[in-house]
Design a protein around this nucleic acid. Structure first.
Length: 902
DNA sequence: CAGTGAGCGAGCTTCCGCTTGACTT
């Protein structure tokens, strides 16, 4: 038996059929090893290395530590077994960088004792596979190194820049070569929308009729000066932007009205020119991942993720009633527009049968993108003879829609050009001494060609047959019906949709077919981008993060970064560049003299300069700055230095493009008026208000504004409460807190329930207990409260386990504690968690001191964590942001901990 | 940006690209 390993099980099944019983074809299920994702996946022997977090030894040749992915373990065990039974192992992973890498990892892990060869095929047909088997080669190490370089660069990029965001913006955030540029694109589109100035421009529209047909003609020029249209205006200023020598006239409402009146009075007009032109239209190439996602989005409203799910099902196949599943489309993660010979031939037959020979034009497409790796074909039906109609009863409606899309596009791509005839007729009028030119455009299809496959037929507009010199007016062959001014406005650039963002990334060579949909998901999951209908709008968090990265790490989030990386990877693959050199320069930097800084020193140098992000909004007429800051619960607008009356939260759904100075001032105004309140508390006659504060929404009873007198009663609302939804009744309910549930039978003290900093709780006489997760304050009875209070205090607190006595020669006591995170030792200053599986009772003084020494050295270096953004009071000086450096002990690489690195 | 009641050692979070898992009441 010869063992053939491919990447996907569906492919394995198909190939298995071609190769016959002497071969066993199995799948690797993609990559089998990767860098460990987090500390707990790092092998024990490397855990104490300074680079363990990265799993790349950045100081010794960028040696990477790979671990078998959990999901791959079972399959790998199976593969190992099969390897032993095989007389030969054939690696048939995809022929691209990642595929070559998978083969290499398979070799490393399986270590087959039998001959191994590497084959590749781009087309799943019997001949292609037989040919591939007949011409084996070895794994291409240079290509593998290129992949490894890519992988390591992405790891260093993501795992070094993300922590910058944790320190300066919010924990849990992420930055990456692909995702950060995706967010940047969305943010910059929003900035363009925000900076956009509308321009109003007018033209004149005439309705004419001849041969019983009505048609329109628009004013295009006056005295040979072209009438300005939308594209003539600058988006950022709303002003006309045409070169000096170009003669353009910008009509407003009045002048357009005048021209219209004068034109109408100027009958008869005259046909001045009739121009006819034959044109052709070519079909588009068959689908690749990005274009499929785009088309499915506009035609069916599917998100990229949904499109890929449906495509996966079509790829894996359905039971067509013959008991065997058969794949209906080729592989859906591809960047190649190439069609196989068989597909080309099949298309010819299908098209000739359906429409006739004339409709068929054999076309092989070539992929434009330099980044393309072309391991697969274009996305097409596996059998073009299988029409959507013939599959209708086997597919669900969405599957059918997508299949139809794929089939139509593949067939159309092999059909003849459409032939069109375009007609332009100009009419001339003497409008109050000005020569006004009106233009009518028509188009007829003389040969439909591939347009037969188009779902929405191109609109034809037939113009009557006119000849130059013909008069236009009452009693003439061409009648003039109306002449009216028409106003237009330029439109701001549209937001990206998920699919159009994918398309843009693809055009820029950023990301791969397998990551487009996940990238779109991750930037939403991180809260950088939100969906508004089909469109993507950046959140204020996304804007803040982009401002930070763009301001301090510009070249890393540059649109061209990936393209540059790809160039280097190509050189590595070709053997003209050394991979570790490249990574050294990327991470540690180039020669000092060149001023080229690597990522690591760059971050170290930059960190102190990074302020907590503020998003610029503008300046008030009084000269105060307006900014958006990120609050704990939501973004808020701040005027000047903030403080009472100068701060307001930003309502949900108000995005940056609309947050202009005027709107911002309106919000501040409205918030001082929120003061009007929800109504009056019947018991106290005091007004009730609902506000959003720094810790979330809350309600308040009475006393707003003056800042004097007794503080008003306030109560928190649960996190995420929409302030607009709060009614008087709801507000009063919360204001009833802290609510007395009754009296403690023993202590004779009141038992209360309230919502506090750590959530809802009950309390009595200085004793407090939190409610359980999800438990409502309104459901708590006295009984329940008593039950909670009678429970012992949850002991997250440390417990002394053992006293080891004083460290030799000192007065410092060394103790072992049992804490929330397990047992640890401490000298009172530095704590060190005991290694797993060690018995806290068996710890010796020696071990404890060693652990403490290691922990002390690991203590965070560099700038101290800065204070929370809202900690400071209005009175405090504003400048505090400068990072204080602790006069911490200089840290050197400890000579003691050295690991024999290979 | 308001305000109410605890406590302690933190360690973790994060990247991009390949692929589909699926043991039971």
């Amino acid at each position: 038996m010869k063992l053939v390993i491919v990447e996907s099980p569906a492919k394995a099944q198909t190939i298995g059929k071609f190769l016959g019983p002497n071969y066993k074809v199995v799948a690797s299920y993609g990559h089998i090893r990767d860098l460990p994702k987090s500390a707990d996946e790092v092998p024990e022997e490397y855990k104490s290395e300074p680079w363990a977090r990265l799993a790349v030894d950045v100081d010794h040749g960028f040696r990477a530590v790979y671990v078998v992915q959990k999901e791959s373990k079972k399959n790998l065990a199976e593969l190992k077994k099969l390897c032993k039974e095989a007389e030969e192992v054939i690696l048939a992973t995809d022929e691209d960088r990642e595929g070559e890498s998978i083969s290499w990892h398979l070799l490393e892990v399986l270590k087959p004792k039998v001959p191994v060869s590497r084959i590749a095929f781009h087309e799943i047909t019997k001949t292609a596979i037989e040919q591939a088997v007949a011409s084996p080669r070895q794994v291409n190490d240079q290509l593998v190194r290129a992949q490894e370089t890519r992988r390591i660069l992405d790891r260093l990029f993501g795992y070094e820049l993300s922590p910058v965001l944790w320190k300066r913006v919010r924990t849990g955030l992420s930055a990456g070569r692909v995702q950060s540029v995706a967010v940047r694109l969305v943010v910059e589109r929003e900035e363009d929308r925000r900076a956009f100035h509308r321009a109003e421009y007018w033209d004149v529209e005439a309705t004419l009729a001849a041969d019983g047909k009505e048609f329109g003609a628009d004013l295009v020029s006056l005295d040979d000066k072209r009438v300005a249209e939308g594209k003539d205006f600058d988006a950022a200023t709303g002003l006309l932007k045409v070169s000096a020598e170009e003669r353009v006239v910008w009509l407003d409402s009045d002048s357009a009205g005048e021209v219209a009146r004068a034109s109408l009075a100027a009958v008869p007009w005259r046909v001045s020119t009739v121009d006819q032109k034959e044109t052709r239209q070519r079909p588009q190439p068959p689908f690749i991942t990005s274009t499929l996602q785009q088309a499915a989005s506009s035609a069916c409203g599917f998100s990229p993720r949904r499109t890929m799910e449906i495509a996966q099902r079509l790829y894996e196949g359905v039971d067509l009633g013959e008991g065997e599943r058969e794949g209906l489309i080729t592989y859906m993660r591809t960047d190649s527009v190439v069609l196989s010979e068989r597909a080309l031939a099949e298309a010819g037959e299908v098209i000739s049968n359906l429409f006739g020979e004339r409709y068929h034009t054999r076309r092989q497409y070539t992929t434009k993108s330099r980044m393309a790796q072309e391991a697969h074909e274009a996305i097409r039906p596996t059998h073009l003879a299988r029409t959507p109609e013939s599959l209708a009863r086997y597919l669900n409606p969405d599957e059918l829609k997508l299949y139809r899309l794929v089939w139509n596009r593949a067939i159309a791509s092999q059909m003849s050009d459409a032939e069109l005839q375009k007609t332009t007729i100009d009419f001339e009028a003497n409008a109050a001494g000005q020569r006004a030119l009106y233009r009518a455009s028509g188009m007829v299809i003389t040969f439909a060609g591939f347009l037969r496959m188009q779902e929405s037929q191109q609109k034809e507009a037939q113009l009557p047959a006119l000849t130059p010199g013909m008069p236009v007016g009452p009693g003439q062959p061409v009648a003039l019906k109306t002449v009216e001014p028409a106003g237009h406005e330029t439109q701001p650039p549209a937001r990206y949709t998920e699919a159009s963002l994918v398309r843009r990334l693809e055009e820029e060579g950023i990301g791969r077919p397998s990551t487009y949909a996940p990238t779109i998901s991750i930037i939403q999951l991180r809260g950088y981008v939100e969906r508004v209908g089909q469109a993507l709008a950046p959140s204020y968090l996304g804007i803040a993060v982009t401002i930070l990265l763009r301001g301090h790490f510009a070249e890393y989030v540059d649109l061209g970064f990936t393209a540059q990386m790809e160039e280097v990877l190509d050189e590595i693959a070709e053997g003209t560049r050394e991979w570790a050199d490249f990574l050294t320069r990327f991470y540690h930097g180039g020669l000092e003299s060149t001023g080229e800084k690597g990522l690591k020193p760059r971050i170290a140098a930059e960190l102190g300069n990074i302020e907590y992000p503020a998003i610029p909004v503008g300046t008030t007429p009084e000269g105060q700055t307006l900014i958006v800051r990120l609050g704990r619960s939501a973004p808020f607008l701040q005027r000047g230095e903030g403080g009472e009356g100068n701060v307001v939260s930003i309502p949900k759904g108000l995005f940056y493009d609309e947050l202009l100075v005027e709107k911002a001032l309106g919000l501040l105004e409205a918030s001082s008026k929120a003061a009007e309140g929800l109504g009056v508390d019947p018991k106290t006659d005091l007004p009730v208000y609902a506000f959003v504060g720094p810790y979330g929404p809350y309600v308040q009873l009475g006393g707003n504004g003056d800042g004097k007198g007794p503080k008003p009663k306030r109560a928190s609302l649960p996190k995420g409460t929409v302030i607009e939804s709060v009614t008087l009744a709801v507000a009063l309910n919360y204001l009833s807190m802290p609510r007395v549930l009754g009296e403690h039978p023993e202590k004779a003290k009141p038992v209360v329930v309230n919502i506090g900093r750590f959530g809802p709780y009950v309390g009595c006489d200085g004793e407090f207990r939190s409610l359980e997760k999800g438990e409502s304050v309104f459901g708590v009875t006295l009984e329940r409260a008593m039950a909670l209070l009678n429970q012992p205090k949850p002991s997250g607190a440390k417990k002394l386990v053992k006293n080891l006595g004083n460290a030799p020669g000192t007065e410092t006591a060394i103790d072992v504690y049992e804490g929330r995170y397990g047992p640890y030792v401490t000298d009172g200053k530095v704590n060190a968690t005991l290694p797993k599986l060690s018995d806290p009772m068996q710890v010796t003084m020696e071990e404890a001191l060693a652990l403490i020494a290691i922990a002390a050295e690991k203590k965070p270096s560099g700038p101290k964590r800065r204070s929370a953004p809202f900690k400071k009071t209005a009175a405090a000086p504003k400048k505090k942001a400068a990072v204080k450096k602790k006069p911490a002990a200089t840290k050197k690489k400890p000579a003691a901990k050295k690991k024999p690195s290979a």
